[in-house]
Design a protein around this nucleic acid. Structure first.
Lengths: 202, 202
DNA sequence: CCCCGGCCGTGACAGATGTCACGGCCGGGG
DNA sequence: CCCCGGCCGTGACATCTGTCACGGCCGGGG
């Protein structure tokens, strides 16, 4: 009995190449493909596969958001998150969203098929080095408001704009921003944004 | 007689998947793979393939730099650039570097094999929509110095740091930066950096 | 109950940033 | 030859940023 798979990845060439790779395995069967988060959600609900393979970076809904919604709506299959970026925060978010596997696109292609088989069998699959990095990093030191303000700052707006968008006083925004910069050890707003994103805290 | 190919792409899983895809075609033969720009250069020089397929975003040397060096050192084969990002400036740079084909990873996987065959036959392969966008955009309005200063500004340093790195006076750096911000219609240094990168002018 | 921490705001300050006007040095083109 | 434009620099100015000190409002925990 073949493992039934839905695969979501926005870059057509990459998606089709991965499908070609998986189709070479006689015990794996790709039953549907998706190019966006919304499609991934629809396809997974429609086909109820044994394993959903989700890229994180997709237009619309991210793979992590899709995983979270599938998980909380009682999806019975396993979820494998695949991503380009080696950000420990992603691992944490993926696990919180109910994923059972987490792979980097830097890994050998054979690992994907292996991971699919293992999660289908009920195991968890996580690169040990990544898991260690995620643990070593700890949680975000930022409060909710600070994260929110920093996120808003990511679009290169002035403090006044951010304040207007969040319905806050400019002074408050500056204070939150200053706190975030301090906590992250950055020297700029821009650097703070970049560091927080890099750690997956945004 | 099969078309001999060297393929360079930093993400192992994607690279191996693409190779698997190409190996399904009886008239194509992947003779070597590379995960970095330097490897790509070495492998291409060693194997002298009919076609070199180069990703742009790679550690070390970018695919465009590799193409440029191959081209100016008299490489006899054809070069196809493949990239994730839809930046018209990339197309311009790729063409200037001597590429004969330019593909986005958003394109169908079948296009890759088709493009390889066509460039091997001496044709040029460029997505018409992308070519139009590149033409519509025009050249960079920035002078050499402005581009250089803006590039240095991308790492979130202060003006003083940039001035030190480029051996310039802080006032001059501010002037160049100000000019760049004006020309690009940005409201920040950060926004200017982002816009220039987005257009491929950096 | 009181204290603590998150959150919101104000006021003040130093320093960084962006803009402008101005001048000098060069090399190329009319 | 002179003019123009790129490049480098200075000085001055208004504004924006980042930091600090301070106070008030709340909700949860000891």
């Amino acid at each position: 009995m073949a493992v039934r798979i839905v695969i979501a990845e926005d870059q057509t060439m990459v998606r089709q190449a991965l499908v070609a790779l998986l189709e070479l395995e006689p015990d794996l069967e790709v039953v549907a493909q998706a190019a966006t988060g919304d499609e991934a959600l629809a396809m997974t609900r429609k086909h109820q596969p044994d394993v959903a393979v989700l890229d994180i970076e997709m237009p619309g809904r991210s793979g992590i958001q899709v995983a979270s919604q599938l998980h909380s709506s009682g999806f019975g299959g396993a979820i494998v998150i695949v991503t380009t970026f080696d950000r420990p925060g992603y691992l944490r978010a993926a696990m919180a969203a109910g994923a059972r596997g987490f792979l980097l696109k830097d890994a050998p292609a054979a690992d994907l098929a292996a991971a699919i088989r293992r999660v289908a069998a009920g195991e968890r699959v996580v690169d040990p080095a990544l898991a260690a990095a995620a643990l070593a990093e700890g949680d975000s030191p930022l409060t909710d408001r600070e994260s929110e303000v920093l996120t808003a700052a990511a679009s290169h707006d002035s403090i006044a704009d951010i304040a207007a968008r969040l319905h806050l006083s400019p002074g408050t925004v500056r204070n939150h921003l200053s706190a975030a910069i301090q906590k992250l050890g950055a020297r700029n707003r821009a650097e703070a944004v970049q560091m927080a994103q890099q750690k997956g805290w945004l």
